[in-house]
Design a protein around this nucleic acid. Structure first.
Length: 137
DNA sequence: GCCAACGTTGGC
DNA sequence: GCCAACGTTGGC
């Protein structure tokens, strides 16, 4: 199974919005690399949910509920979206500063290319985030 | 609010 | 095909 990180400005679409909706169409991606990542997703893949801008932290775990299909919000161009389902919040959000300072997480695509809205995660990175999210230190 | 990084566009 | 100009994103 592959793992992912998806990113959204909380003012636009927040974790709370996802919790409220349960499942949402992850539309509006207009970047080829991000689109190709969407198309590589398989049903059931886990995706960490990151708040960019205000927040700058990973706040929850989501799951791919439907594989890529044509983005209904796209009027031209070859764009895709997937459906994302809420799974559970992190006990403790993992902030960008923590991520950058961490040996394992420092190599995340989020750090290297902060603009990419859909990026892959290694299993090691996913597990590390979940570990830090439940740590009390 | 500023600026760096990145992607896209268009002139040549 | 190259590269300068521009727009967007996101961290600070």
């Amino acid at each position: 199974m592959k793992h992912w990180l998806v990113k959204s400005e909380p003012e636009t679409f927040s974790w709370a919005d996802l919790v409220k909706e349960g499942v949402t169409a992850w539309t509006g991606v207009r970047n080829y690399q991000a689109r190709n990542n969407l198309r590589s997703m398989r049903k059931g893949d886990l995706a960490l949910f990151y708040h960019s801008g205000a927040g700058r932290e990973i706040v929850g775990v989501a799951r791919v509920a439907r594989v890529a299909y044509p983005d209904p919000t796209s009027r031209e161009g070859d764009w895709s979206c997937v459906d994302i389902a809420h799974v559970r919040p992190l006990d403790r959000p993992v902030g960008l500063q923590i991520i950058k300072a961490d040996l394992i997480l420092g190599t995340m695509t989020l750090v290297k290319n902060s603009r990419l809205s859909v990026s892959p995660l290694t299993g090691e990175q996913l597990n590390r985030v979940l570990e830090l999210a439940r740590s009390d230190e």
